[in-house]
């Protein structure tokens, strides 16, 4: 967008008034569904996602089971009303891919050996999408997993960075994602600093990539604090409900 007609920045701020290293507002609530073993509702900017976790439970169909550890299944799904133009319901190439990478991002923290021959099912429903739904889904899923009492080595946190108008920025919004130059979702374990997922759409120089990673790691640390607070708040609300 170098023609000067459209620009992503105005007075050094972005379209929605954020700084380059600023996240969109987040709201996380744990334990919102009664029937699931663990659940979480999360809003990240215009994204609204709901995550539900079931298990460890018996594996169906039976042949999928593993005798030495639990299997993790992750289903990312977008509601038909989550986008401007009605989305055709059901799994498609994109959501199958997101399910796979998100599952791999989550799997590495779960103590799967504790539950041989079982399945841990994670369902992520995107109710409203606004760029960065896979990151929002992972953030919600990891809170829901903790809420379900599944033992993990740490929470997984995710956020994206990207490039717009030649500048590296944190957490793209929809316009920035659609018309920007690059989008890089990152998932990590804040406790150890391990990266469990990284994908890149677009072009970046190595230096831009390194700069962006720093932003993303800082972004994840902020989100991690909110995930913690959501879980602690859930317990406090449970206590209050009694009195």
């Amino acid at each position: 967008m170098a023609d000067g007609v459209y620009t992503f920045f105005k007075d050094g701020l972005r379209l929605d008034g954020r700084r380059k290293d600023e996240l969109r507002p987040l709201k996380i609530e744990a334990g919102v569904l009664k029937r699931a073993d663990g659940s979480c509702y999360l809003e990240h900017g215009g994204n609204k996602v709901m995550a539900a976790v079931y298990g460890p439970r018996e594996v169906h169909p039976r042949h999928l089971h593993n005798v030495t550890q639990a299997i993790v299944r992750y289903k990312y799904n977008m509601a038909s009303f989550s986008v401007d133009e009605r989305k055709r319901p059901g799994p498609d190439r994109r959501s199958i891919e997101i399910s796979k990478v998100s599952r791999e991002a989550m799997e590495s923290v779960v103590l799967k050996e504790r539950f041989p021959r079982t399945a841990i099912d994670v369902f992520v429903e995107v109710l409203q999408s606004d760029a960065g739904t896979r990151a929002a889904g992972i953030n919600a899923a990891s809170v829901a997993m903790a809420d379900a009492g599944i033992p993990m080595k740490g929470l997984v946190t995710s956020c994206a960075f990207g490039k717009i108008d030649g500048e590296v920025v944190l957490d793209l919004c929809k316009e920035e994602d659609n018309y920007g130059e690059a989008d890089v979702p990152v998932a990590m374990i804040p406790r150890t600093g391990d990266i469990t997922m990284i994908q890149m759409d677009g072009h970046l120089t190595f230096d831009e990539f390194k700069e962006g990673m720093k932003l993303a790691i800082r972004g994840c640390d902020q989100i991690y604090e909110l995930q913690r607070e959501a879980l602690i708040e859930k317990h406090q609300n449970d206590l209050k409900a009694k009195e």
Partner: peptide
């Protein structure tokens, strides 16, 4: 020492975390 479940910290005689949820094993 790190926690691996969501729960209540108990440091009476040995450090442990009492889970708030989870399936019976």
């Amino acid at each position: 020492v790190y926690a691996n479940v969501y729960g209540i910290l108990d440091q009476k005689d040995r450090v442990r975390v009492i889970p708030l949820a989870g399936k019976y094993i």
